[in-house]
Write a protein that binds this DNA or RNA. Sequence first.
DNA 1: CTAAATTACGAACGGTCGTTCGGAAAGTCA
DNA 2: TGACTTTCCGAACGACCGTTCGTAATTTAG
Lengths: 199, 199
Amino acid sequence: MSKGQQTRAVILSEALRAASVEGFQGISIGMLADRLKMSKSGLFAHFGSKEELEKALLDESAKRFMARVWEPARQAPRGRPRIEAMFHGWLDWSLHNDDLPGGCLFVTLAAEYDDRPGPVRDHLAELQTRWQGMMIRSAQIAIQEGHFRADLDPKQFAYELQGIFLTLNYYRRLLRDGSAVRRAELAFTGLLTRSAATH
Amino acid sequence: MSKGQQTRAVILSEALRAASVEGFQGISIGMLADRLKMSKSGLFAHFGSKEELEKALLDESAKRFMARVWEPARQAPRGRPRIEAMFHGWLDWSLHNDDLPGGCLFVTLAAEYDDRPGPVRDHLAELQTRWQGMMIRSAQIAIQEGHFRADLDPKQFAYELQGIFLTLNYYRRLLRDGSAVRRAELAFTGLLTRSAATH
DNA sequence: CTAAATTACGAACGGTCGTTCGGAAAGTCA
DNA sequence: TGACTTTCCGAACGACCGTTCGTAATTTAG
């Protein structure tokens, strides 16, 4: 890895940490340069604009999410086991992620960008739509395997699964409610129970 | 109402609109002054600091929410009807609120402030905790009235109800998914069904 | 080792930020 | 109407924003 790519990776990691707490609106080139003890212009040169930095952060975060949540889950057996693996990986990503002190970046950005048109919003929405697609397909496989009810609506399943994590973030990080994780787990087992095939 | 209070109310309304889209980080004194065709310093004088403006916005938004969602629901009969009224008022607040073009301010702020300590975060968290309390008490009443199962966990009920609205916002505003409202309604009727007493 | 290419820096740009202050304008009340 | 208070404005403050540019330092490749 060349020196440039190496520096770029360090910048992305630090920016990811900062953005998970402050959002994209809350980070600045100068602040990142200070933290990394390098010059504004030197840091800036790696991306050409703040918007490009933001898009790079989206990609980096998606890459890490896929590596940590999706890839391991894909190793699990098709159907319900895979969905359970997905849930636990996602939970682990949300709770024990030292790279993201402010929690999942996508949750932070979802609210920040949902009404602010532009390339960043578009990029974020596409990544999130893609993730919905993976959840939907996983639910379809579980139906196909006979683990889930044949009349289950896979998209509704994805909707409610996504909701569990949005709510987890809200209860845990904003309300600082100690029972948040347990409630998320309860919600998930409830969702599984009512999705399960009755045989 | 004196001239000052009148102006203050106008500022709050405009700031509320802007903040629902951009968040508190995205609004500035200068931008609000421009939109209202008044001077920065004139606008500023009504609050003394940006932070005071932000706290005033939290209170104003909470006041409107209570007037539009909670007060009407309180008129409904105790128990399940009141909870259904709450849901529909909340849905109406989320969907048809011309005063908040960016959707519910609390949803926007929840992600923005969950990891940023300070008076604004504290104020927001307290308002939201209070709202959780109202939902919990409503669920308790529904149990008491025999509408909900005696072994229902009221806090888990509140958790999942809150989740429906967080997810609605995400699907509707970020993903622009046309089925978002229907999915929220489905999730709510599902929640009601599994909370209902079996008599 | 040398020469070319990459990477990093410092200084400066026009703008906008929140905030301060003194005085002009407008509202309030006898 | 007149006196007094409240409301508002314009100018300015230092700080920080994203961005540009010429140049120095370092890395890379022959």
